[in-house]
């Protein structure tokens, strides 16, 4: 291990993953999470084998019953012959410091099914962005041959939206009895939803939530081709999941036939390339020029009003250079 280069090690690991070795897959995902140069080497080997699986993001506020929905959805998808990989992302674990990741508790009955892979991911402070790390982890599982990838995220914050944004189809799970919950989660999350699930549909407030979502959707004029359906489930009793699976497949068909899948993936990759490049610019161009005593001195000049911020920035990246 010590004698071979990391490049070779990465290639070997991916080779093993491609043969279906779960241990290798587990390690590839860890390396992706740890970040660093290894990620690039791994992606070089992985990337040609990706792009086949469909990615479904499942998100919603805490207490909505997402893990149970995912557990039941795995059951339905397995009965339909799909090979399913799940990434349970919990961005709410403390940014620095540890985490207890417990989403897989509700999915443990699938733990010994060879056609199911379940992986938990915490926040950890991924500098490259949690969304990128989770997406790369999904790509590894795609390369391994899983036909369907589920990305579960807890909560409705910015990082969850970003994670959900890397999916082809986004399912938003809403619990009844949130009070003005639909209003509260409307910003951001309503726009990304391709399918709504009102879980705990046996709750007396469930129909109200359905009506609320319908009201919001009526005002949404941006999506003439696909109106997000609202699926009612009682995940704890296994009810409504077949319906959800039908809707997911319908959405997939819509994406493919309308060319939307192509457009979405293209847009996402564009964004990804730009993000990677931006980070590289920051690290390779900006950081060496700002981590200097000269920069500290210049900062003092700006603080003491001998120079203005634009003039200082000009010293770091001259306008002509930036333009050229």
């Amino acid at each position: 291990m010590v004698t071979e280069t990391t490049e070779e090690a990465a290639a070997r690991l991916v080779e093993s993953l491609l043969k279906g070795n779960r241990r290798a897959a587990g390690r590839v995902i860890s390396a992706i999470e740890d970040g660093g140069d290894a990620v690039e080497m791994l992606m070089r080997a992985l990337y040609p084998h990706t792009g086949r699986a469909s990615i479904v993001g499942i998100t919603g506020p805490p207490g909505a019953g997402k893990s149970t929905v995912v557990d039941e959805l795995i059951r339905v998808m397995r009965a339909d012959g799909r090979a399913v990989a799940v990434l349970a992302v919990d961005p709410n674990s403390p940014f620095s410091g540890g985490a207890v990741l417990g989403d897989r508790v509700r999915m443990m009955r699938h733990a010994t099914d060879p056609e199911v892979f379940i992986r938990s991911m915490g926040a950890r402070g991924h500098l490259g962005g949690l969304a990128l790390a989770s997406h790369n982890a999904l790509l590894a599982l795609d390369a391994m041959g899983f036909s369907d990838l589920l990305a579960e995220t807890v909560g409705v914050g910015q990082s969850e939206l970003e994670v959900a944004g890397t999916a082809d189809t986004t399912v938003v799970v809403v619990p009844p009895g949130l009070g003005d919950g639909v209003q509260a989660i409307k910003a951001g999350i309503m726009e990304i939803a391709d399918i709504f699930v009102v879980n705990k549909a046996d709750h007396p407030q469930a129909d109200r939530v359905v009506a609320d979502i319908r009201d919001v959707l009526r005002m949404d004029l941006k999506r003439p081709e696909w109106t997000p359906p609202i699926v009612k489930t009682v995940a704890t009793a296994g009810e409504g999941l077949e319906d959800l699976w039908i809707r997911i497949r319908q959405h997939r068909r819509y994406l493919e036939e309308s060319g939307e899948l192509e457009r979405r993936r293209r847009a996402r990759l564009e964004q990804e390339i730009v993000e990677i490049a931006e980070r590289r610019l920051r690290e390779q161009v900006l950081r060496p020029r700002t981590a200097t005593p000269e920069f500290r001195a210049m900062l003092t000049d700006v603080v003491e009003r001998r120079m203005n911020p634009y003039e200082a920035a000009e010293q770091i990246v001259p306008k002509t250079a930036a333009a050229g």
Binding site: T68, V105, R109
Partner: peptide, 10 residues
């Protein structure tokens, strides 16, 4: 009656 799956509360 169905079976119970424990939610994780650590």
């Amino acid at each position: 009656l169905g079976s119970y799956r424990e939610p994780a509360f650590v």
